[in-house]
């Protein structure tokens, strides 16, 4: 059962709710491959994407998910809207509410932005990433992909590698995976991980070799640092040589390890090209699963709030 107004994060979702989303996504996935199965079950729904932070791929994924279910999907066009004239997030939300929007999908650079919006509007709010907090649809598509290949979560070793301390993807996955019984290891250079994340029930380590050795799943996160003061590591060259995954380092991993990445990949930094395109990589499958999971979420939220 799914009876929520909003989807803000995995922290507050129960195991049952997560499984309901994943099961629904299974049905949705067929509609992507087979256009004749596409439906208009969300025909009466209006959806708006509000991307205060750019992400063409996530926004497209949501818009297509809405399209495949027959919903009306619009983009707020944050760059050109009154947001730039200083309108507050709450006022923007209330305005959209009055215009009859049923679902607001928000991406924002500030932690808690989706939460604030949800508290102030009648529409359902989907968090498409807020600050360093959560990115629930990404984690759900990751869970869906893992379930597809591994069939279960219990006792599975999942290693998430990279810029952990600022990663909402790592956090949402940590919440979701631990609820489903997986062992989660967050790994990266000491300056990109935070010991206090252990309180979320995960392992935190800078021992990359150890983190790879027993992993059933390795998830690389995008490393992107502008040259700046207080760089947390000396440079990309050093990063890739010490913390990047390549064919050589992968030799110590399990034969059937899944290589995942939320994209877009920095080839040659967090993952070498031969790993991105290698036989263990499911990075492209994740993209398709992303649309399926977002269809499932739109459907479940709409049904729950009719």
């Amino acid at each position: 059962m799914f009876a929520r107004k909003d989807l803000l994060g995995l922290r507050d979702l129960s195991e049952d709710e997560i499984m309901t989303i994943l099961e629904t996504a299974k049905i949705m996935k067929e509609k992507i491959d087979n256009p004749s199965l596409r439906s208009d079950e969300l025909k009466k729904s209006s959806i708006v994407t509000m991307f205060y932070e750019n992400s063409t791929r996530t926004r497209m994924s949501f818009m297509l998910a809405g399209d495949y279910l027959g919903a009306m999907v619009k983009d707020l066009g944050v760059a050109t809207s009154s947001v730039n004239k200083g309108e507050s997030l709450i006022d923007t939300g209330k305005t959209l509410d009055q215009m009859g929007i049923n679902v607001m999908i928000i991406r924002h650079r500030m932690t808690g932005a989706a939460d604030v919006l949800a508290r102030n509007v009648n529409a359902s709010v989907i968090n498409a990433g807020d600050g360093s907090n959560e990115h629930p649809t990404q984690a759900l598509l990751d869970l869906f992909t893992i379930m597809d290949y591994k069939k279960h979560f219990d006792g599975l070793n999942v290693t998430i590698l990279g810029d952990i301390s600022h990663s909402r993807v790592a956090r949402s996955n940590a919440f979701g995976l631990t609820k489903l019984g997986a062992n989660v290891t967050l790994a990266g250079p000491s300056t990109l991980i935070s010991g206090s994340m252990r309180s979320l029930g995960v392992d935190v380590t800078s021992d990359i070799k150890g983190a790879i050795a027993n992993a059933d799943v390795i998830m690389g996160l995008r490393i992107q640092f502008e040259r700046q003061k207080n760089m947390p590591f000396p440079g990309l060259r050093e990063y890739s040589s010490l913390f990047g995954i390549n064919a050589e380092t992968l030799k110590s991993a399990k034969k059937d390890v899944l290589i995942m990445h939320p994209g877009p990949v920095n080839r040659g930094v967090e993952l070498a090209t031969e790993v991105v395109d290698g036989k263990n990589s499911v990075i492209n499958i994740q993209v398709k699963n992303g649309v399926a999971v977002r269809m499932a979420i739109l459907k479940l939220l709409t049904d729950a709030n009719r």
Binding site: T111, G112, D130, N133, S196, S199
Partner: peptide
């Protein structure tokens, strides 16, 4: 721990 839980920078 609270910052870790809420995803707020510490």
């Amino acid at each position: 721990d609270r910052a870790a839980l809420l995803g707020l920078k510490g």
